[in-house]
Design a protein around this nucleic acid. Structure first.
Lengths: 161, 161
DNA sequence: CAGAATTGCGCAATAT
DNA sequence: GATATTGCGCAATTCT
């Protein structure tokens, strides 16, 4: 997947055989022969076959030099066009999905970040309490009076999230 | 943005006008006949323009009935081809970037998740200590002996991350 | 060898 | 008016 074989071919078109296709959709109806001028196809004939018109694609020869007319040709084109469409659709879909994924991940991230903030805060509170308590102990304070905190306050820390 | 005007045109090819163009500036070799056979071609001329070859795009006429020959036409095509290439490149780049973003976000997510785990653990430890201590107090234990914990242990909790 | 999937490319209709 | 986008078909390759 993903390579770029196709001969780089500098924009200067080298061999170009190109074709035009479409056009057709001129006006709406077009159905019949509405199409004004447009001549039809030139028929690129395969000049072909170097010296001995090999009919059999032995070693060198490209293929059988496709006949644009051939039914088989048309069929193949049509199938390919279909495949192309499919492929592109998928590609597009994938891109969309990826974008969506980004959004989801971003949200998730915010949630996590928030949770961290919360936990950090709790932790800091607890630590402070501890330090305070330690102090009290150091100062030799009565244990009972030292009960400044009720653990209960810290027990509902089950952040649902 | 995003619509799909282009006449759907059922795949049944209606009238296809095909042509070959290039050729002209073949010059640079394109080396010999690399391209197998392909002869060129016919040059589809726009049969066209009703009676008088109007040069001026008056009211009805399409445009000036583009002359495929016209220099201006060729120039426009070339510029457009360029634009198309550019656009596609960008599009591809964007997709790639998005994918990358996904990866980054995923990593970040894992980091956050880990941090949360850590904080949670610390918190849980602290809470346990608290509970234990509370117990001791309840049981009326001597404060001094209650010094089971040293706050110091909890002070280096600055998770670098 | 065949058939589907990808990919680069150019055209033309639109959109901006 | 010019460039940017987009759908489409062709052909060359690659993948199955």
């Amino acid at each position: 997947m993903s390579k770029q074989p196709q001969q780089k071919l500098t924009n200067t078109d080298q061999n170009g055989v190109s074709v035009i296709q479409s056009q057709a959709h001129c006006s709406v109806g077009n159905s019949a022969g509405t199409t004004a001028g447009l001549q039809q196809v030139p028929q690129l004939v395969p000049v072909n076959a170097g010296g001995g018109g090999k009919a059999t694609p032995s070693s060198k020869m490209k293929k059988t030099i496709l006949d644009k007319e051939s039914d088989e040709y048309r069929q193949r084109r049509e199938r390919n066009n279909l495949a192309v469409k499919k492929s592109r659709m998928r590609s597009k879909q994938k891109a969309q999905d990826t974008q969506q994924r980004v959004n989801e991940l971003k949200e998730e991230n915010e949630r996590l970040e928030a949770k961290i903030k919360l936990l950090s805060k709790e932790l800091s509170v607890l630590k402070d309490l501890f330090l305070e308590h330690a102090h009290n102990l150091a100062d030799n304070v009565q244990p009972n009076t030292a009960a400044t905190v009720t653990p209960g306050d810290l027990c509902n820390t089950n952040n649902s999230q």
